[in-house]
């Protein structure tokens, strides 16, 4: 077992454990912090799989920006007081567990028996310079569309986050 393999399986374990802990927490702040750990462990894995720029962006964008946004909103909203009982949770969980279990077994059987999936991937590193050339020469239209999407999201978030006075004045006629 080479060092790469040890690091990969170690990181995979950390990612899975942190994600499982994140999605089962009652308190949303704890879930967000566990998710940050999951993303921070996923970033070296991106590096291991040959994407150093994306590993950096994962830390800056996901673990940095998006999760901090989550944290701000969680702290802005009041805490949920009415916690559902355990019976309700168990009743609502079993469809999710059933469906994901079935899909997981199916995908595992397919992925572990497919001859294509057995081929080992060899290490490679895409330099950010090369990556940027491909991004801006071949996919420049996609970059423009993404920037437009971000602009629309900005406008939408601003519109939704405006002060709620007009809504409070006429609660019946708002559409």
């Amino acid at each position: 077992m080479t060092l790469y393999q040890v690091v990969f399986y170690l990181l995979a374990g950390v990612v899975l454990a942190a994600t499982v802990l994140a999605i089962t927490r009652r308190v949303v702040v704890h879930a967000v912090v566990y998710l940050v750990i999951s993303f921070l462990a996923l970033a070296p894995m991106f590096y291991l799989l040959g994407a150093p720029l994306l590993a950096l962006l994962e830390v800056i964008l996901y673990a940095g920006a998006i999760m901090v946004l989550f944290l701000f909103i969680v702290m802005m909203l009041p805490r949920e007081t009415r916690a559902p009982g355990l019976g309700v949770l168990a009743r609502q969980c079993w469809p999710a567990v059933l469906l994901t279990g079935i899909s997981l077994t199916a995908m595992a059987v397919v992925l572990l028996s497919l001859p294509l999936a057995q081929t080992p991937v060899t290490a490679a590193l895409a330099s950010p310079r090369h990556f940027g050339r491909v991004l801006f020469e071949k996919y420049w239209l996609g970059v423009e569309v993404a920037s437009f999407l971000l602009f629309v999201a900005l406008v939408g978030a601003y519109y939704l986050g405006k002060s709620p006075e007009p809504v409070a004045e006429e609660p019946g006629e708002s559409s």
Binding site: I23, Q92, T100, Q118, A123
Partner: peptide, 29 residues
């Protein structure tokens, strides 16, 4: 040399299903 291709995909599948289970089962927005 690193790992079989299927293990990377399997990890991605497990992560995706964990996220899907969270989106299905949890009630907090």
């Amino acid at each position: 040399m690193i790992v079989p291709n299927g293990h990377v995909l399997l990890l991605a599948v497990i992560l995706f299903l964990l996220g899907a289970a969270c989106a299905i089962a949890r009630r907090n927005l």
